[in-house]
Design a protein around this nucleic acid. Structure first.
Lengths: 340, 340
DNA sequence: ATACGGCATGTAAAGGTTTACACAACACAG
DNA sequence: CTGTGTTGTGTAAACCTTTACATGCCGTAT
């Protein structure tokens, strides 16, 4: 007897002997309908297997209960658990997540905005570090959808940010190296445009300054955050006359490159050099030597940012425009007491 | 002069001086409208910044152009690039993807089905290896949404499958070990319920059989596919009187565990033992020794499966119920010529 | 007895599309 | 000049909700 078409609110109303308005109310604001009627309605719902049609609902309510996530690369191991956190929190609150893999392609970014302009998504989580390309062109400021930037803050835009306290984390990391007796500490991964790298460098400098250690600028090397760039930077270091005893790397991928370069030169780590990373990506514990690093609370970052976005969406006045979470020092085997 | 409300098809029709039906046609089936009118309409569209409201469209058309992806853990490095492939193909064809992270929790699985029953998604990509819990209960077979299983086939259900040819891949892997002179080859990762593991074991057995090598059943050990289980299995191996010279592991995570166990016992790899994995997960190249393994064409798997699902959705009669892609032997440093 | 407020429910509009059907204009064959 | 197709466009229904407003009823204060 199951209808080929799915049941609508009208079918339910008919069976329960009430109007569709009452059915809608019974389902959405149970307080507003008499107990006896509500029971009849719930029975009818069970009997028909009714589910409310999300399309009709969204059309009427002008809201889709859907969040768009824009990421340059969903496959990035750095994003994986953030994604899980985002999804968990969204799902818990009845929202779905839509993912947009931009590959940093402006065209794709613009294209994903159709989800916003066509009302398929109510807000955006930005993992890209910049406003979606084509957003300004799309219309005046009033049309800007609610957004939260995660991991990478968006420069020159008043977008709420959730991420790790990079400055503080880098300070803790550098302090740890200092506590192991190191003073000639290199920083691998200087950048003049990536905000995260700049904050981490500042943390490094501040830690050394407070410890009264002068910074040898020849120990501060540029690298773009990839394993390859880390390897290259380490190689460049060896043309210098004086070498550091420890390397603080802007992230784990870079640290991996440094470790590969040092191992290839035949050094024994961590005996000859200490290496410290940042992020605690999944394979940090599998490298040899396993990597001492700062762990990003990725799950929490995901949850907190989704929580913030949904709060904005639901009209709560959000006072905090920035949520900084603490990173945690993870002790493994790539850092040791200074030996020379 | 930009309206506070987004422009509707009616606004466009008014400006272009035609009816809304013509506007709709001009946009969706351009051939059916006169060139001159179409031009006027496109002008009006540009002028108003009109975008069609996806909700209204989906409501009317009973189709959302959205695909639900059910995965036990989106953060799994094994899934990452499959996800990218899925997204790429979907996006190329104008579909969006909705992700459902089930954590193998029946309740969450059931919950995600609301996207289907409420018409928010048109089809499902199953990465879980089983039908979503609660699907059968939801209604008769006629209501089953189009589905494609990826990576893990769904047992006892006629669901089209896309994945790597595990049998063939395992055979190639084992052949490689044999070609390096090994005959005492262990299989780590036997399972009696995971289809993928069973296929890989069969490939292993077939390769040895065709090479005329008798299998020592004491070399076939159970493990559930985690790094920890690989480590444990390797340890168990050492209570035996005779040891293998090579380990073929059901996947890279297991291989990693084996490597860790062997290294901890002070063996020099690959000199003392060869270890082979399967999957080529991202950190396979970072372990020491770097892991020789079979590479899964993850991007392709993602694209092929989405392509199949969309073909089904668009009514093309899909003849192929199973697409098996080839895995590729990746030579690194964990396998060497037999030395003893 | 009258007025009034609160409660439970119903009526109908609105949200923005797509598309079956109808219609008009025109060309062309008979 | 009539009948038949073709082409281009319009009218209106349908998709399924939510919700402002109206209605009717009952209880209570005046």
């Amino acid at each position: 007897m199951s209808a080929t078409k799915p049941a609508t609110i009208e079918d339910v109303a008919l069976i329960a002997g009430v109007s569709i308005a009452t059915v809608s109310r019974a389902l959405n604001e149970p307080g507003k309908v008499a107990d006896s009627t509500r029971r009849k309605i719930l029975d009818a719902v069970a009997q028909t297997g009714y589910t409310t049609n999300a399309m009709a609902r969204s059309l009427r309510m002008r809201r889709a209960n859907m969040i768009l996530i824009l990421a340059p690369d969903v496959g990035d191991p750095n994003f994986s658990n953030i994604l899980v956190g985002l999804e968990t929190e969204a799902s818990k609150r009845g929202y779905g997540i839509l993912i947009g893999n931009t590959q940093n392609d402006p065209e794709r970014e613009t294209n994903y905005l159709r989800f916003i302009s066509s009302n398929q998504a109510d807000g955006i989580i930005l993992l890209t570090g910049h406003l979606p390309y084509g957003l300004e062109a799309a219309g005046p400021v009033t049309r800007m959808p609610p957004m939260v930037a995660v991991n990478e803050p968006v420069p020159y835009a008043a977008i709420p940010f959730v991420g790790v306290d990079n400055f503080e984390g880098a300070r803790v990391a550098t302090d740890h190296l200092i506590s192991q007796g190191h003073t000639r500490i290199a920083f691998i991964g200087k950048s003049t445009n990536r905000a995260v790298a700049m904050l981490r460098e500042r943390g490094y400098r501040t830690a050394l300054a407070s410890a009264g250690v002068a910074i040898d600028e020849r120990f501060v090397l540029e690298a773009d955050g990839t394993t390859e760039s880390g390897r290259g930077a380490a190689e460049r270091m060896f043309v210098r006359d004086q070498l550091p005893t420890a390397f603080f790397c802007v992230n784990d991928a870079t640290a991996l490159g440094v470790i590969i370069a040092l191992s290839a030169r035949g050094y024994d780590l961590p005996h000859d050099f200490s290496v410290m990373g940042f992020d605690d990506i999944s394979y940090a514990s599998f490298v040899t030597p396993s990597l001492t690093t700062m762990k990003q609370p990725r799950l929490q970052i995901g949850e907190a940012s989704m929580d913030l976005l949904l709060a904005m969406l639901e009209g709560e006045d959000v006072q905090k425009r920035e949520i900084l979470l603490r990173s945690e020092l993870i002790l493994r085997n790539s850092v040791a007491l200074r030996r020379d």
